Amino acid sequence: MGLKIGLVTGEFPPMEGGVGAFTAELAKALHQLGHTVHIITSREARPPDAPRTFTSALEPIAIDFAQLHPRLNRWRWPSLAVIADIVLRHELDVVNIQYQPAAYNMNSAAINFLPWRLKNVAKTAVTFHDLRVPYLFPKAGRLRQTAVNFLARSANGVITTNPADHQSLISNLQSPVVNIPIGSNITAHTTNHIEIDEIRSRLGLKPPAVLLGYFGFLNESKGADVLIEALAQLDGRFHLIFIGGQTGASDNANNQAFLDGLRRQIESLGLNERVHWTGFLSDARVSAHLQAADMLVMPYRDGASLRRGTLMAALAHGRPLITTTPTTPTPQLQSGETCYLVPVGGVGSLATAVQTLTNDEELREKLGHGAAKLADQFSWEKIAAETAVFFQTLLSNGF
């Protein structure tokens, strides 16, 4: 028997953001498994063609795979009552909070109290996309960590997306904790050499040009500035393309500040002619650009992690990937097998790795095949099935 599942998320398409894209893919897969899904999210996610009368604003919008409730504005304390009303009206069995502080523009800890508000109303599970603390307000200090701890402890169950977060939480919680990795938020579309040639030609690339690809929004944690420094050490054959939107809907001010600094860095190093930008693209065009790059380079400052949707997209597209050594053991990421690992912040080693892969076609093919094989472990059907089983476990425990 299918469940009635509520997914609470601070962002959802057409808003740009990894958590929103994750929620959409999870909802689609849960729907395919026969569950009824309600997505409770920001007003900014209201489809542009949806009615905007006062009455219609209170009603869910039917999309292909879910009922969409774009009702929330600033994610403050009144938001809890709005969510509780939706849960009661639609008799939801379980509410799954997609938690990443930046997605909720957190100047308030209200969302951290949602499991407490829904106690004896519906089962709650929190998916931690990361364990970063919210900003809340100046000098919040220890209250930031306290808010995260309260959220984890008041939920009926917790989902982590990577081994490091799982290890951090499992020893501190009495409620069930399960690790369910994320999948690629970009479907690998079939393309051909004509489309690939068109993309490279539009960029003005001719043999022996080498195109490096970077995918994802730009912020300090993802190491794009290190990549620019490495590009400056490489000769004029090497070009870099930033694929997709640049700052996203979450934490836009900080991301914009980083982007502005990155553009100044590019100009100061004389790289304007070798750095290209696509801007926001459809999934199909993102997929084509990923395949048009000779290799993908994503030097995360906090190390590669299976919680990164951008990394999962690289794997799903079977691309040779250069990334940074994980800060915690991640057996799936084997250097020379599924990816090519370099030290965090190592500009010289990053440039050397690019040269190595450029000169070794056999290694590039090996890494691409290894990435695609690894990605098979992270299908959305499998992720949704594991998530639904966890929800069923919570429901069987009773209140």
Rank of each mutant, 00 (worst) to 15 (best):
I61L: 12
A384F: 01
Q334W: 01
I243E: 05
L68D: 06
F215Q: 00
N252H: 10
G20E: 05
V148C: 03
R117E: 06
A372K: 15
K4H: 08
T323Q: 06
A232C: 03
L231N: 04
A45H: 05
I228K: 00
T310S: 15
F399K: 10
T247H: 01
W380M: 01
N107L: 12
L7M: 15
M295L: 15
A351N: 08
D294Q: 02
T127L: 06
N105C: 07
L203V: 07
V148A: 02
N172R: 15
S171P: 04
R74S: 11
A62I: 03
L341E: 06
R46V: 06
M312Y: 03
A109Q: 00
I97A: 06
A81K: 13
E91Q: 14
P181S: 11
T41H: 00
A155Y: 04
G348I: 00
H369V: 15
D197W: 06
H35F: 03
D251F: 08
F54C: 05
P320M: 04
T324Y: 03
L118H: 02
G10H: 02
L357Q: 04
Q256V: 04
F378R: 03
S42K: 08
E11F: 02
L212S: 01
H189Q: 06
G6E: 02
R200L: 08
L114G: 01
L114Q: 00
L118M: 04
R46C: 12
N252S: 12
A21Q: 11
Y135C: 02
L269H: 13
V210D: 05
S79F: 05
L290R: 07
V126A: 03
M298V: 05
I97D: 02
G213K: 03
Y214W: 13
S56Y: 01
T36Q: 12
L151G: 01
T160L: 08
K373V: 14
A29H: 03
G236D: 15
E220D: 11
M1D: 10
H38G: 05
Q377A: 12
L7T: 03
R144C: 10
H193Q: 15
D130P: 00
L173Y: 08
I199H: 14
T124P: 05
L341D: 09
T124Y: 04
H129Q: 12
L118Y: 02
V344H: 07
T278N: 09
A372R: 15
S349G: 04
A125Y: 06
A109S: 14
L58K: 15
A288D: 13
F22M: 02
K366I: 10
